[in-house]
């Protein structure tokens, strides 16, 4: 097999040493999402343990192959929205029936139809803000976040399959063999 060229993390020997905190990542770049999909299927049939797949855009049909369950973000969104509904409606009810009842235009204190617009707006606001914040937290993203980034072309035009040599449980040769069998464009090794 070809040797990996040292990157900034590698030792001069070309033999990276992982210290437990790091992942010793062996990854390959593919130039097309169809090759990537075929490769992921092949990895599944060879019972290899993919650490992560990185793509420049959402590739449809990839999630079931990687064994991802449907995201439950929308369920969280429903809860946040319901919280917004209760907050808005409850607050307006409290203000106009308990805290400071005022008659506007001869209408009842508790004039439910007039509360609907603000209740709707706060439902949407709570659901949207809650979901977006949840999204960034569970993905570990945010200003200053430094998650694993393997290659600069992944956000451009390359599709990446990464294996963790320390914790993945697959030996390097079988991974390299898999990469060459599935038409990887290039193979890299990086300590992250």
């Amino acid at each position: 097999m070809a040797h990996s060229i040292a990157d900034e993390y590698n030792l001069k020997t070309g033999e990276p040493v992982a210290d437990g905190h790091h992942h010793d990542v062996l990854f390959a770049l593919y130039d097309d999402e169809e090759k990537l999909m075929a490769a992921v299927k092949e990895a599944n049939s060879r019972h290899l343990h993919i650490m992560e797949v990185y793509t420049p855009f959402p590739v449809h049909g990839l999630d079931p192959l990687l064994g991802f369950e449907e995201s439950r973000l929308h369920q969280a969104g429903f809860v946040y929205g319901a919280l917004g509904t209760l907050t808005a409606f409850g607050f307006m009810t409290w203000v106009f029936t308990r805290d400071w009842p005022i008659i506007f235009g001869g209408k009842p204190y508790w004039s439910v139809p007039a509360f609907i617009p603000i209740t709707f707006e706060l439902t949407v606001l709570f659901a949207a803000v809650g979901m977006v914040v949840t999204f960034y937290i569970i993905c570990g993203l945010g200003p200053g976040a430094e998650p694993i980034r393997l290659h600069d072309r992944i956000t451009d035009d390359k599709f990446c399959i990464a294996f963790d040599l320390n914790h993945g449980g697959d030996d390097e040769d079988s991974i390299r063999d898999f990469f060459s069998a599935t038409g990887a464009e290039s193979v890299h090794r990086k300590l992250v």
């Binding site: 990185y54 959402p58 590739v59 449907e70 929308h74």
Partner: peptide, 25 residues
């Protein structure tokens, strides 16, 4: 960029979020 790295799981959640935000918007 908030540390975006193009992970497949992030894309899945990103699409889910976009769809629900579209439904709300």
């Amino acid at each position: 960029a908030f540390g975006w790295n193009g992970s497949a799981k992030h894309w899945q959640r990103w699409e889910s979020l976009s769809l629900v935000l579209a439904g709300l918007a």
